[in-house]
Nucleic acid binder design. Structure first.
Lengths: 249, 249
DNA sequence: CGCTGTGTTGACAGGTCTCAATATAAGTGG
DNA sequence: CCACTTATATTGAGACCTGTCAACACAGCG
């Protein structure tokens, strides 16, 4: 497979050679960014979207009162920065939490995809909807679940996403979030996160290692978290056939 | 203005006559649905998306333990059901909470928009991103704000959306959510919602009427809620010019 | 006129936060 | 390589917010 993050697009359509080439031409060269560096600041103008090729990143908002909310954890293969296409100014800061490599696409190139490769555009649209569902699941989770369940749901969410994009072991995963990151994601304090992490561990749901977490029994954890199982669509007919019927007729 | 919900699309591009006609041809006839009726059930197959022409609706998820989470309140002009394009089965139930009229669009017609009217597709994409931002704001709000602030943020969110799509009075709005709805939205109990509603009222932030809420001082409420002010993009160049450069060349 | 949906109020229990101290690991500069 | 600083994780005690349970008021509606 190529090193382009096309796999994320290819989850929903099978790109033709032309589509892949177009995408390849439009996107910029991969760029390395060190840990803790900002990829994009809250308030910057909106002119690029980013594909995360490798490493972990977060988008967060700093509030007037000094608190920080992490609104999304970005994993390899993800699309970053698309939501701000709806804004004049970036809403969030994008920061690398490990060394990362990214590739960027100008908003102009983004428009080109819509006119030249409608099937890719449809795939991007579906990805956006998938993200909406993820956010909705998080709202569901934040709403009324205990901190313990929320943490379990977060772990499983990252686990599932890592399983999709890389060939990793079945029962463990990399982990690059500090407890402060987790706290800012779940709306808890880092103090409490520490407690519930230990609790989850003492109950046998997880085993913690350096930069990694193992799951002795994923299914048990899943039942405990009460997170919905999502059955993502793959290559839906309406998207796959875009342009076909017309050009034939 | 037409009775089609094109205004929502027209927030981001100025549709040509052809684009408007295409959309008009693809969408179904308006349909009326009584209060409390389900527009779409959790688990149904995915073959339509809906435009809410009039009335209020909610999408919610019923959890195994009997709790209900409202993931979105739909107001007139909104697009409903797009997120499930990423799924094989509908993730949520769509229910009218007032009498509503809707117009539907098949997923096939949705594909046609991507091939025939890329600018409309781009507008739909931007709307999706806008929704993502709204969800992110809600996550921010749910995460660490007090119940009082969350309620204030919800009220302002609905207020701002109503201001966008209809010409209503500056200092008041219609309100069709019961306190149970609010509780299911904010992740609180209806008991507590009752308390904080009274508290918000006794502090002078709101005045409650039948099916309506008035805001004596919107800006004070906004400061209290601490919700971010969003500056939505309008007719961005990358979307407006889609297809132009190409056809000329 | 009774019924169901909705809103209000009170007392108590429980989860999470705050504040504070400490331990451990990870960098950094000499 | 060591000393120092910083980041991260852990633990405890008490306060506060919100949930639970229960009872009741009120309205709309058949």
């Amino acid at each position: 497979m190529d090193r382009v993050p096309l796999h994320r697009l290819a989850e929903f359509i099978d790109p033709t050679a032309e589509e892949a080439a177009l995408f390849e031409n439009l996107r910029g060269y991969p760029r390395s960014i060190p840990r803790r560096a900002a990829i994009r600041q809250q308030g910057d103008p909106v002119d690029q979207i980013y594909f995360l090729l490798d490493g972990w990143a977060i988008s967060f908002v700093d509030l007037p009162d000094g608190q920080r909310r992490i609104v999304k954890v970005h994993l390899p293969g993800g699309v970053m920065g698309a939501p701000r296409l709806a804004l004049n100014q970036a809403a969030e800061t994008l920061m690398a939490i490990t060394p990362v490599t990214i590739s960027s696409l100008s908003v102009h190139g983004f428009g080109t995809i819509f006119s030249e490769a409608p099937r890719l555009a449809a795939a991007l649209f579906i990805i956006a909807q998938q993200e909406r569902l993820n956010l909705k699941d998080r709202i569901t989770s934040l709403g009324r679940q205990s901190a313990l369940q929320r943490l379990a749901a977060l772990l499983l969410h990252v686990y599932d996403r890592l399983q999709l994009t890389s060939d990793v072991d079945q029962d463990k995963m990399d982990w690059h979030l500090t407890q402060q990151h987790v706290a800012d994601s779940l709306g808890l304090t880092s103090v409490h996160v520490s407690r519930i992490f230990r609790q989850l561990e003492s109950q046998g749901f997880i085993v913690r290692r350096k930069h990694g977490i193992a799951f002795p029994d994923v299914e048990a954890l899943r039942r405990f978290a009460g997170a919905p199982e999502r059955e993502w669509v793959r290559c839906p007919a309406w998207a796959a056939n875009i342009g076909r019927g017309k050009r034939a007729a």
